Structures are given as C-alpha cells and as structure tokens.
Simulated scan of single mutants.
Amino acid sequence: MSPAGTGRCFRRLVLVPGLLLVAVFLGLGVWQVQRLAWKTALIARVEAGLAADPVAAPGPADWPALRADSDEYRRISVTGRYLPGADVLVQAVTQRGPGFWVMTPFETQAGWRLLVNRGFVPADRRAAEDRPLPGGDRTVAGLLRMSQPGGGFLRRNDPAGGRWFSRDTAAIGATLRLGLAAPYFLDAERAGDGLPLGGLTVVSFRNSHLSYALTWFALAGGLAVLLVRVRRAPERDR
C-alpha cells in the first residue's frame, strides 16, 4: 500500500471512533446539565419544605401519589398515640456515633397507622427502660421520609432474627402486623434531652453535576481539536 493509502486508512481508523467518542462525551455533558437542573430544583424544594410549617401527614387517599422527588423531607405532623411494646431497632451511624434508630408504630386519630422514628439511642443504651414510650394522645412533628427497602450496604434485613439495617416500612409493618400502615415514616423532631434523641436527620445533597458537565465538555473539545489536527496532518506533510 502506498504511503498516501496508508495515511487515509490510518485517518479512518482514528477519525470514525474519535467522532463517535466526541458525540458520546457531548451527550454525557448535556445529561449532566439536565441533572444539575434537577438537583438544583430538588435542593430548593427541600430547603423550602424544611423552613415551612408542618402540614398534616398524608392519609391513605394520598399514599399512591407520594414520590420521593416531590414529597420527601416535607415537615408533617400527626396526632394519635404510640402503640406500646412494639419498638423496632434499626442499626444507625450518626454524628453521635453508632447505635440504633427507634422505630415505633403510631396510631392516628383517623385509625390508620405509620411508623415514627422517635430518634437515636447509643448501642449501649438500647434497653427498653432507656427509651421510655410516651403515653396518651399527642401530636408528633417531623420529616416525611420514604421507605428504605431491602437493607443496608451488603447487609439485608432479617425480620425473623430481629436484625434491621434499613427503615423498610413495608417489612417492619408486616412484622408488627400493623394492618393499614403508611408507606413512609416520620422522622420525629427533637423533643427534650432524653432518649431517644430526635432531630438527627442530616439533610444534605451532593451537587457536583456542574463539574462533571464541564469535564465531559472539556474531553469532547480536546478530542475534537486532536481529530482536526490528525485530519490536517497529511496536508501539511504534502
């Protein structure tokens, strides 16, 4: 094959996949821009919800329409009573160290039930006497949190063995035989200094989509410049 033919073959081998990669990098950059817009709107919604007054906890008629993107981290309140003798401890790691979330069933005045995360107890304070249950009717306020099915990282919930690694409302509700129970749970706000200690939910969203988008666009631009130089190289050689 002549040198000119070899050069054309080489350019095809480089330019065709190179152009495909440029298109892929541009697509990934556009996707990250779209993700940036979604994440920015999500953060704005959550921050507005955290600053708002609590609204009534969604009842059974509202459950099918609940979505994490639009409903999680809203401040809600509910009135009713805790059901005694049915706490479930879910392993947790918090700013206070390792321990457990205390998940307690709550019966509303309307008759349906939901799980309330009453707060955190350290690993050495998990006994029933360390997490006394308030009696009588009361109003509980906090954050609406969607169910966390399955378990934690590399660890699955074991309802039969009483080992819980995530706040799976469906599985916990079935284990406790709660009947008509909400598909979400309420993260209770802090009330006093005793245990369980509420209000430890950390609401933070990582937002690196802009840097990701710039990275993909930079890769696309750099590769495009390189392909142009490869395409023009034979002309300079002649």
Rank of each mutant, 00 (worst) to 15 (best):
P196C: 02
L13S: 12
F185Y: 15
Q32D: 08
W38G: 00
R231E: 15
T79G: 07
L219E: 12
G173P: 04
I172H: 09
L15W: 11
L66C: 07
T201D: 07
A37T: 09
V225A: 14
E189L: 10
V202T: 14
P122T: 10
P58R: 02
L176Y: 03
G29W: 00
G199P: 07
R118E: 05
I172C: 11
S211R: 14
R131I: 05
G222D: 00
R190A: 15
F205D: 07
R125H: 10
P3S: 07
L144T: 01
P60R: 09
F100M: 06
A51M: 13
W101P: 04
A61E: 13
A61I: 01
T108I: 08
L178I: 13
R145G: 00
G198C: 13
G85K: 11
F100A: 14
L176H: 03
A191F: 01
G49I: 02
P84N: 11
A61G: 02
L114C: 12
N157V: 01
P134R: 04
L133Y: 04
A110E: 15
A41T: 04
G18V: 04
R12K: 11
R96I: 02
G29C: 08
G85W: 13
D193K: 05
D69R: 12
L15V: 15
A218W: 02
Y73H: 07
G150I: 02
L144E: 01
W31T: 08
W63M: 09
A56M: 02
G192R: 11
A188W: 10
P134C: 07
A174I: 03
L42K: 01
M103C: 09
D137Y: 00
G142Q: 07
Q91M: 14
Q148S: 06
C9T: 14
L114T: 10
G135T: 15
D193G: 10
L89A: 06
W216G: 11
L154D: 05
A128F: 04
R206W: 08
L176Q: 06
M146V: 00
A56C: 02
D69I: 09
R45A: 06
E107I: 08
V140A: 11
L227I: 11
V55C: 06
L176K: 01
G222R: 01
W31H: 03
V140D: 12
G198D: 14
G179F: 11
F106H: 09
A191W: 01
L226E: 04
W164F: 10
P60C: 11
S70Q: 15
A128M: 05
V46F: 02
P84Q: 08
L186I: 14
V116P: 05
P54V: 10
W38R: 00
D53I: 02
V14T: 12
F165Q: 12
A220P: 04
A127G: 09
R131N: 05
